[in-house]
Amino acid sequence: MNAKSALSLLLAGWAATAQAQGFAGLGSDAEGFAIPQRGYQLSFPQDHGAHPDFRIEWWYLTANLKSASGTRFGIQWTLFRSALAPGEADGWQSPQIWMAHAAVTESDRHLFAERIARGGIGQAGVSANPFEAWIDGWQMRSTDGALEELQLTASGKAFSYDLKLSAEGPLVKHGENGYSVKSESGQASYYYSQPHYQVTGTLDLPEGTVDVSGHGWLDREWSSQPLAEDQSGWDWFSLSFDSGDKLMGFILRGDSGNYTSGTWISAGGTAKPLAEGSFQAEPLEFSNVEGRRIPTRWQIKLPQRNVSAEVQALNPQSWMGTSFSYWEGPVTVNGSHNGTGYLEMTGYE
């Protein structure tokens, strides 16, 4: 039995019960876990670090890069924290489990890797000041102490990368000053981003080393119950237009209707939350991915900003076949606005 399938087995029970309620346990009741409060003031650098009293948390970086010859690459680096119980303890007694996914996506290839680790023993974790997030040999490390300058590394069997990230704009808080509502019944998370990274570095691929550069987007989110009981998954867009404006929008798919939300980020970095329902996305085309039917071309609309464009996956087969599997990959935007972005789709069974 290889490591991956062993891991899936281990996590299967956890995932099965979780998925009955929503993706990866995000919809379950928060027993003993802290719950996001409206009006909480995010404070940095502390909030860049881990929040062990909350059930789930992530440090989620995606980037659209190009080589000197113009080949497009998508990069993903995600560290998940998942608590079996609230709080932190020393050594092996820690209830925190860390999981990380990394991927390199091209139009015709999607490489990914996964790491899983215990908290408490130093194998994985996040420190706020100076900022460092790590698991095994992967890391996202601040070179200036804060989140403005980062070094990002990850490696799998078939790839590795080493990138420098440099922020060219301010942090962006989503929702109500970072309090992001996720359902009609009030489920919410803390959610902020740094969508303004200039990225340079190298990718090590089976064919050799490639110098790349482009734009990166970091999402930080933590919560204990971001999904309502009836919500089964989401479609999440982070788009950077050629105009310099950016759009984050998501649809939470629920039995009793979808919940959509998002943020408009102007070229200058000012963030405007979008009212529920104002961001619209309709599937135009489905692809058969790992035996599932997954929308890989979308029509998005944001009437208040005159956005009407098609979002097309760079590689429709950007499937993360990890312990929790989902679709995650770079996209191209064409229409009223042109640009690139990332699309994440979960809960497709």
């Binding site: 087995l9 281990l10 299967a12 079996l84």
Partner: peptide, 29 residues
């Protein structure tokens, strides 16, 4: 063993499943 990464994890997880227990509970106090 570290239940997250030892080679015999799959077998133990299987066994726990059959006991109706979530394998990861073995990590808790």
């Amino acid at each position: 063993v570290d239940l997250l990464n030892h080679p015999m994890v799959a077998n133990l997880a299987n066994a726990a499943e059959q006991d109706g227990v979530q394998p990861l509970d073995a990590l808790l106090p």
